[in-house]
């Protein structure tokens, strides 16, 4: 009796091993050989009726145990079959060397990347980005920046103007001065100073315009970042410190800067800044002019209502195209505005 039950389990076990990659129907037929109406286990269970009363409980317990073992075996076989079916449904394996179709990583424009790099470096020392309009007025672009009324920068030769009947709903004027396209983003500094009280520390990245004929290093349209720091007792030493910090972060720890006295109407003293850095192979040894800077001229503070006896500050401005060309070795400024995908994709 015992032996025959054990034999059923053994038969199921060995049968399941031999079943291999059977179909579901084969499995059901095989399973019926044990638990179907005429299956060996069904027959063995029916035999309980013939047993003497005292043996019935033990046999019943054995039957239960064997049933559980059989169910486990069936379950395992079924799982194997299901996995085989699932695997089969996956289809042919891919050729891993085929190029994934239609996949093209996008890219930020190189000028955006450089702008963000500079903003990030300056954000770490507390500069925040300020924005202003590209169409500006003579007051914000020149007057407030201490540019004399007959200064050549204001000439029609150098600055784009709009017609006198143009009326901008959302670019405020000081008086009835002309609208123009801003020649630098210092205009944002003026607008910010008119709105906020010091201390303040802002950077204004943005598009500027000069009436230049396009060539490898000039365009009528270019981008600048200007920075302004106004506080008590801001000194020339602080200006040198921030520029060393900026260029060492941007161009490598061995970058050096050099201040050459210069002249801008809105700063006094004013400097042009040269840099050199061994990291940049071609330009590493020679001093290279990169930007202008200076201490905010007291006249500028007066024009925005800051007391120059209390407040002092520095300002600096650099051309994003110039920095990008230096950092990445781009040799023609026009590539930035042609948008050849072979150029754009290089910096993805």
């Amino acid at each position: 009796m015992e032996d025959s039950l054990e034999a059923i389990v053994e038969e199921a076990e060995s049968g399941s091993r031999g079943l291999g990659m059977a179909s579901r129907a084969e499995f059901e037929a095989w399973k019926a050989g044990f638990v179907g109406p005429r299956g060996s286990f069904t027959l063995a269970r029916k035999r309980i009726a013939d047993l003497p009363r005292e043996e019935k409980p033990e046999y019943g317990r054995r039957l239960n145990e064997v049933k559980q073992r059989l169910d486990r075996i069936f379950e395992q076989v079924l799982e194997r079959i299901e996995m085989a079916e699932l695997t089969a449904s996956l289809g042919d394996p891919p050729d891993p060397t085929l190029p994934p179709p239609g996949w093209d990583r996008g890219s930020s424009h190189l000028l955006t990347q450089v702008r963000e790099a500079i903003c990030t470096i300056l954000a770490r020392v507390g500069f925040v980005v300020a924005e202003g309009p590209e169409v500006e007025t003579e007051f914000f672009c020149f007057d407030a920046l201490n540019t004399p009324s007959e200064h050549p920068a204001r000439d029609l030769q150098d600055t784009y103007y709009l017609h006198s009947d143009a009326r901008f709903a959302n670019v405020s004027k000081r008086d009835d001065e002309r609208y123009l396209l801003r020649t630098h983003t210092s205009t944002v500094q003026i607008r910010t100073m008119l709105e906020q009280q010091p201390p303040l520390r802002i950077i204004s990245p943005g598009r500027c315009f000069r009436r230049d004929t396009a060539d490898a290093t000039h365009g009528a349209n270019f981008h600048q970042i200007e920075a302004l720091y106004v506080d008590r007792d801001v000194t020339v030493k602080d200006l040198k410190a921030i520029l060393d910090y900026l260029f060492r972060n941007l161009l490598g720890p061995d970058a050096e800067t050099r201040f050459r006295p210069h002249f801008f109407p809105y700063t006094e003293p004013s400097f042009e800044v040269d840099f050199r850095s061994r990291h940049l192979n071609k330009v590493g040894k020679e001093w290279m002019e990169i930007m202008g800077c200076g201490m905010v001229d007291p006249v500028v503070f007066e024009s925005v209502g800051y007391d120059p006896a209390v407040w002092s500050g520095y300002a600096f401005g650099l051309g994003i195209e110039r920095i990008a060309m230096t950092l990445y070795g781009v040799d023609d400024i026009r590539y930035f505005y042609q948008n050849d995908l072979r150029f754009l994709r290089q910096f993805a």
Partner: peptide, 17 residues
């Protein structure tokens, strides 16, 4: 910018005129 670049777009810059 981040959103469009992640969708596979390339950022361009053209003159304002």
């Amino acid at each position: 910018n981040v959103s469009l670049v992640e969708k596979g777009f390339h950022e361009c810059m053209h003159y304002s005129m």
